[in-house]
Computed example of a mutant assay.
Amino acid sequence: MVLKRHSSVVAQIPLSADGHLLRDSSTGEFEYIHADQLEVSPDGKWFYYQPGSGNMSRIETKYLHKAQHDSSFVEKVPEHVEPFPRNSKYWRNCHRLQWHDGDRQEIRILAPDGGNTLLVRDRRLLWIDAMWLDHQQRLWMCASQLNHGDRFVQPGNKSITIHKPIYVYTIDVGESPSALDHA
């Protein structure tokens, strides 16, 4: 809440998936999802976040803790926000950030040095959300297909295009979750 009006939590561009800008089915307006992806680094030092359409930022958790216990510091919290070097979609943090690009149906890995590599690209990876690393070093990915549901106007005004069943995929990534993770 200490960043609720800060530009880093406000979506600047509409959400997109499958190469289409998404519109709300009840209003027809473009859909903006503000600060949605949230993650803390494995060492607990950094809080990473971004709107659904990208522009990732981070802030050291010590400033959030200080604001929680010192109300006079709350207005200074935004001064400590840093842009993070990747305009990404859905992601999961471990030692590296794994994120989903909903337009390309791919999972990419962002290394601490800012470099990124393709992990997997597959047309079945539709609207991957809430990725999870397990102790067998697998990344779990639920292909929820939310962009094909009734929340959004479908291209060509088609009806809902979700194909059931909804699948959960795994892939070996060679990393375990953080020791601070609740896995």
Rank of each mutant, 00 (worst) to 15 (best):
S71H: 12
Q68L: 09
S41D: 12
H6W: 04
H65I: 06
S144M: 13
Q98S: 07
V153F: 00
K158R: 15
E31Y: 08
V168Q: 09
T117R: 15
K66M: 09
L139H: 05
V168C: 11
P51S: 06
T27Y: 05
R23S: 04
A143V: 05
L3W: 05
W140T: 02
T61Y: 07
N116G: 00
G149E: 14
N116S: 11
C94L: 03
G149R: 15
P42T: 01
H182E: 12
Y90E: 08
Y169T: 01
P51K: 10
Y49H: 14
L180M: 10
T161C: 07
V2K: 07
S88T: 11
P14Q: 05
F152P: 13
V2T: 11
K45P: 01
K164E: 10
A143I: 09
V10E: 09
Y32D: 07
L146V: 02
I109K: 02
G174V: 10
L110R: 10
S7R: 15
V173I: 15
T27P: 13
R92T: 03
K89F: 02
R92F: 04
G149Y: 10
A17W: 12
H182W: 11
D101E: 11
V9G: 07
P112G: 01
G115Q: 15
K158E: 13
E60W: 06
Y63F: 12
I171A: 01
L139T: 03
I107E: 09
A183P: 15
L146T: 05
D122F: 03
T27C: 07
H65R: 14
R121T: 02
F30D: 07
H135K: 14
D113Q: 09
T161Q: 15
H135M: 05
P14W: 06
I107K: 08
A17E: 14
H100M: 03
H69L: 06
D122G: 04
G52N: 13
E31V: 06
A179M: 11
Y32L: 10
G28K: 14
L15T: 03
D129V: 02
